[in-house]
């Protein structure tokens, strides 16, 4: 009975079981089945070597953590810069009582617009948080795939949401699909 080129890989096990069941004289159908099994075995071996070439351990041990650290640093830097801007705004607001009424009003409006604009830091922080979550999901899945092919580093499952509030918390939508304040006002009014 032909043995093909199957090695000692655990993935070859099912192929070997089937081979053991085949008679020594193969019918055309059995030969075709054997050829398919051998091809499958080669595909599994190729997938394993490709996963090894990916250096999945490096991805989960260094590249993704480094990427998330960089993103955390972006959030920290923007938070620090935003706080500097807010410090300056509060200093400017402190001058209002000493200014003529018209100038105080102009200053107040300008400071309000800066406060409004500074909320970018919250939105970008949440968006970056979503990217970090996605990277961590990729990290877990790479680890799980590596483990499934007999390599070390099993992936851990993400914790399920504990409450409705957590289940629905998904952060900012992309601008193209996000509801506006007017959309939300209309939706709330529909309950009245």
């Amino acid at each position: 009975m032909p043995d093909g080129n199957l090695g000692a890989d655990p993935a070859d096990g099912p192929v070997r079981v089937v081979l053991g069941l085949l008679p020594s004289e193969l019918t055309p159908r059995e030969a075709a089945l054997l050829a398919e099994l051998e091809a499958l075995g080669r595909e599994v071996a190729r997938a394993k070597s490709e996963i090894a070439a990916l250096q999945a351990d490096d991805i989960t041990a260094s590249q993704i953590p480094a990427a998330t650290d960089e993103l955390d640093a972006v959030v920290a830097h923007t938070a620090a810069a935003t706080n500097e801007i807010l410090d300056s705004c509060e200093a400017l607001e402190g001058l209002r009582p000493r200014l003529p009424e018209e100038a105080a009003s102009v200053l107040s409006d300008a400071v309000t617009r800066i406060y409004e604009a500074c909320s970018f830091q919250d939105i970008t922080g949440q968006r970056i948080g979503k990217v970090v979550t996605a990277l961590k999901t990729i990290e877990r899945r790479v680890a799980a795939a590596t483990h499934a092919f007999g390599c070390p580093g099993a992936g851990e499952a993400a914790s399920p949401p504990r409450t409705e509030g957590e289940a629905l918390a998904s952060g900012p939508q992309l601008p193209a699909s996000a509801a506006s304040q007017q959309d939300i006002d209309r939706l709330l009014a529909s309950f009245e």
């Binding site: 309000t112 406060y115 409004e116 909320s119 970018f120 919250d122 939105i123 949440q126 409705e164 629905l168 918390a169 998904s170 952060g171 900012p172 939508q173 996000a178 509801a179 506006s180 304040q181 959309d183 939300i184 939706l187 709330l188 309950f191």
Partner: peptide, 28 residues
């Protein structure tokens, strides 16, 4: 920043008084 319909509906059903989506302005 949660602006999905299901979020607004869940908040309304839970008894929210009003709902502001970020980013917002002082007028809102």
């Amino acid at each position: 920043a949660e602006s999905k319909t299901e979020n607004v509906v869940a908040a309304k059903q839970a008894g929210v008084s009003n709902y502001i989506v970020k980013p917002f302005n002082a007028e809102t």
